[in-house]
Design a protein around this nucleic acid. Sequence first.
DNA 1: ACCTGCGTTCAGTTAAAATTGAACAAATCA
DNA 2: TGATTTGTTCAATTTTAACTGAACGCAGGT
Lengths: 156, 156
Amino acid sequence: MEDTMTTHILTTRANFIDFMGHALEGNGMPPIAGRILGLLIFDGEPRSFSDLATELGVSRGSISANARALVQRGSIIKVNMPGDRQDYFQLADESFCVLLQTIATRMRSTSQAVQGFASELPDDATPHKRLDGLAVFFTAMADGIENAAKTLNQRC
Amino acid sequence: MEDTMTTHILTTRANFIDFMGHALEGNGMPPIAGRILGLLIFDGEPRSFSDLATELGVSRGSISANARALVQRGSIIKVNMPGDRQDYFQLADESFCVLLQTIATRMRSTSQAVQGFASELPDDATPHKRLDGLAVFFTAMADGIENAAKTLNQRC
DNA sequence: ACCTGCGTTCAGTTAAAATTGAACAAATCA
DNA sequence: TGATTTGTTCAATTTTAACTGAACGCAGGT
């Protein structure tokens, strides 16, 4: 009974980790980054570098690269345990907010880029208007996402 | 002078098309789809199937596949010109709105999926809470994006 | 000093995605 | 009918991204 329960949780855990791998793949991140994030979200507590490699069944090189990318994005943080020189990783408190901010920022820079193209064109040219419209579109999207961040009532 | 102007516009056009190719690449679409979209946004008017292949310098097979994908997404529409049996494509009026709706929908389904994983876990388990939080996150994002769509005062 | 464990790096490999190009069917025209 | 044009399909190819694994430097431990 206890075992059944545990098994079910472990199955769910594995499925969730797998799911996150695919989900973040669709957002321009490598699958393993998604799996690391999924594992850390699920477990909540710090996990060691080696554990990640072992549990996910991937090379240490992969953990190194992908964990670094996640740290850089602010999704996870690296922590040190006293008397243990391994690196540990855990979900960042502001993880989700950071994710939103990252996306919003990307939208804004895209908007700016499009605006740049528009400004190259004569004001009366119809492409100018359309590119302007596209720039507005990206800005609106950035606004919407940042707004969502605030809605989450966390510090963003 | 006239020539300089035209050249500059053409250069900007080429750069914009190229930019869109890269931009949509980051959103999970093939580069050529982005370039087709960029070309149609810039030009505004219908362009023929063959023109797309010629101007973008890619195979007809690629135009066929990518244009179809864009049509299916609702970003562009296929139109027919009287007395010309070629297929023409042009930017859909609701192009940008559709883009937002697509993203919002994906967010909601992701949220639901995560919620599904959460429901597999006992209510008192801490992973349950975290997955719930993640689901809320995706919902908030979907809301934010749909809100942005409405802000654009177009019919969405 | 030597050994062991840890994380990084990067050249090589593998796997996945995108694109090509030739074959094809349908439609048009002479 | 036969020749042409048009868009689709799919197997082969190219391109790109991701991953591996061995070599390396660094820290501690014995």
